[in-house]
Design a protein around this nucleic acid. Structure first.
Length: 279
DNA sequence: CCTCCCCCCTGCGCGC
DNA sequence: TGCGCGCAGGGGGGAG
């Protein structure tokens, strides 16, 4: 269910429960994720401690360090939730249910449980510096970083005939903008999703950069408000409870002007837009 | 390099 | 109520 705001919400939820904890046991119940969960996970992690939980794009990076006195290099557990992955913290883990694939049990009994019906997610073990890992090395700028701006976006899209919505979802231009927020940000910016990226002016791209940031930031804020529910009990990150302006609203009135929202397919994914507000 | 299209997999909602 | 179909928030990878 995760786009960047959800992943960030999850990061903020799990980090305080795990940082400083040592791994007591790793249980892999089903290795068949996007790539097989490597045996190295069980081999490396026991005894190691969580130093930090970071995020890069929609990847969660669990920075692990060995016990004091052991080899100096740490490693990173790379987790991606795909379409349906979720992570839950349990003080005492309840019985495993369908689609619970991996448990990390910590020294105080706290359990981090990975659940993923479609198994499009990823759990990898990366010794040493994870930044060099192929899945991370070529990622574009984070949406809130200085590297994502009108100038760089303008330069990167010149000569590109691809639709702006597809460009926005191209993780070399900016990471973390998935289908929902691409739709919502384009609505906010007043840009039609089908316009060729290379034909948009710098000024319009500046508006888009701003719209992307505001859309994501709002969703993260909303997620934060229900963080406790997510971590401590049954519940979903709050961003799902957001009302969307256009996403999933085919035929319903545009919240700004009342025109019926339209939908179409781009790159095998659904696009929604207001034909009046977005040009 | 760019663009397009496929696929991995399960669950759910809808129309009949 | 049951069944088949299409669709779902990601993104790597290969073909052209």
């Amino acid at each position: 269910m995760p786009e960047l705001p959800e992943v960030e919400t999850i990061r903020r939820g799990v980090a305080p429960a795990l940082v400083g904890r040592s791994v007591a046991a790793v249980h892999v119940y089903d290795r068949r994720l996007r790539w097989p969960v490597p045996l190295g996970l069980e081999r490396a992690l026991p005894g190691w401690q969580v130093a930090a939980v970071d995020r890069r794009s929609k990847y969660l990076l669990f920075r692990m360090v060995p016990p004091a006195g052991a080899s100096p290099d740490g490693g990173t557990m790379l987790v991606h939730l795909g379409m349906t992955g979720s992570l839950r913290i349990h003080r005492r883990a309840p019985a495993r249910t369908t689609h619970d694939h991996v448990d990390l049990v910590f020294d105080d009994g706290t359990t981090l449980r990975y659940h993923d019906p479609r198994r499009f997610g990823t759990i990898l073990w990366v010794p040493g510096d994870a930044a060099a890992h192929p899945l991370l090395a070529r990622l574009g700028p984070e949406p809130f970083s200085a590297g994502f701006g009108a100038d760089t976006l303008h330069r990167a899209t010149r000569g590109r005939r691809a639709a702006i919505k597809l460009a926005l979802m191209d993780n070399r231009l900016v990471v973390g903008v998935g289908n929902i927020y691409a739709n919502e940000a384009l609505f906010r910016a007043g840009i039609r999703p089908t316009v060729a990226a290379g034909r948009l002016s710098r000024a319009r791209l500046a508006g888009l950069v701003d719209a992307v940031r505001r859309t994501l930031a709002e969703a993260i804020d909303k997620g934060g408000s229900t963080l406790r529910d997510y971590v401590d009990s049954a519940g979903e990150p709050g961003a799902f409870q957001l009302g969307y302006a256009v996403y999933g609203r085919d035929g319903l009135p545009c919240p700004a002007c009342g025109t019926a929202v339209r939908s179409l397919r781009q790159g095998q994914r659904s696009t929604f837009y207001c034909p009046t507000c977005q040009t």
